[in-house]
């Protein structure tokens, strides 16, 4: 996600492009941390009290989300510490376990009603019992390396993604071992209105003026469907390219499911 980053003698700090009051329609302190970690060379890091400041519990462990999507390794003995602001949507990487001195960031005015509506929808999704399609938390964990890290299986010299069990010869395909490239080409796209959106997203769709979705092809062959993020000012084009970032996908049964969303890189 587009972040504002400040690096000073205390460490690296980041908030969303909107400022520290809001992390965006599908962002939170975890996605901010992922964006900041991606900008730095991967090392080891301790989570410190970071998890205590997340609004909701992820369906996959924070360690796994960070490791799969950024390459950083979680180690509680690491010298670098990940922090999250208790109130604001700001994260930091420092060498101290003490709460850092938080810098001030620029703020973009976003209608409070929009923020509140989206926050209410996320809350309703997470706290409600699923009325929509259901993928169990265990299933999310099983496929997490593919969902969060774009890991593909190898079958007869071709890559397979998303993962499947047997090939057309009835032989079991091994677990994913190859990471797909982090960009892909748009084959087609749509924008679903509130009326056309899945029930999981029907609360947020009208606030966001619809849900953008792309079908893309990776250079290595596999294709996939992804929701668009940060596409307020862009219209997808066939043969255009996207990159991927971890965002909130949807909330269900007390947890937030995170996954990759597509970001337009060329229109």
């Amino acid at each position: 996600m587009d972040i504002q980053r400040i690096s000073n003698q205390d460490g690296h700090f980041a908030c969303s492009k909107y400022g520290q009051q809001w992390a965006g329609p599908d962002g939170d302190r975890l996605t901010l941390a992922l964006a900041l970690l991606k900008q730095l060379s991967a090392e080891t890091i301790a989570l410190n009290s970071f998890a205590d400041h997340l609004e909701y519990t992820p369906s996959v462990s924070i360690d796994e989300i960070i490791q799969l999507s950024t390459g950083w390794i979680i180690d509680e003995d690491a010298s670098l510490q990940l922090h999250a602001h208790r109130k604001g949507f700001v994260v930091a990487i420092t060498e101290s376990k003490e709460e850092p001195r938080w810098p001030d960031f620029d703020t973009t005015e976003i209608p409070v009603e929009t923020q509140n509506e989206l926050n209410e929808q996320w809350n309703a999704e997470v706290s409600g019992v699923s009325q929509g399609a259901y993928v169990s938390q265990a299933q999310h964990v099983l496929a997490s390396s593919s969902r969060l890290g774009l890991m593909a299986q190898v079958n007869q010299e071709k890559l397979v993604w998303p993962p499947r069990q047997l090939n057309s010869s009835g032989q079991r395909i091994d677990s994913p071992t190859v990471q797909l490239s982090e960009t892909a080409t748009i084959l087609t796209w749509t924008r679903l209105s509130a009326a056309g959106a899945p029930s999981e997203f029907s609360g947020r769709a009208p606030v966001l003026d619809g849900v953008g979705t792309v079908l893309v092809a990776f250079d290595e062959g596999p294709k996939g469907v992804f929701m668009l993020a940060d596409d307020e000012n862009g219209v997808p084009e066939i043969d255009g390219t996207v990159r991927f970032e971890i965002r909130r996908l949807y909330g269900q049964d007390g947890v937030i499911h995170y996954g990759l969303k597509a970001i337009l890189t060329k229109s």
Binding site: A133, P162, T213, G224, V225, M227, L249
Partner: peptide, 10 residues
């Protein structure tokens, strides 16, 4: 459900 619907498709 897992790879299409929950990626935003109906």
């Amino acid at each position: 459900t897992e790879w299409e619907r929950l990626a935003g498709l109906t």
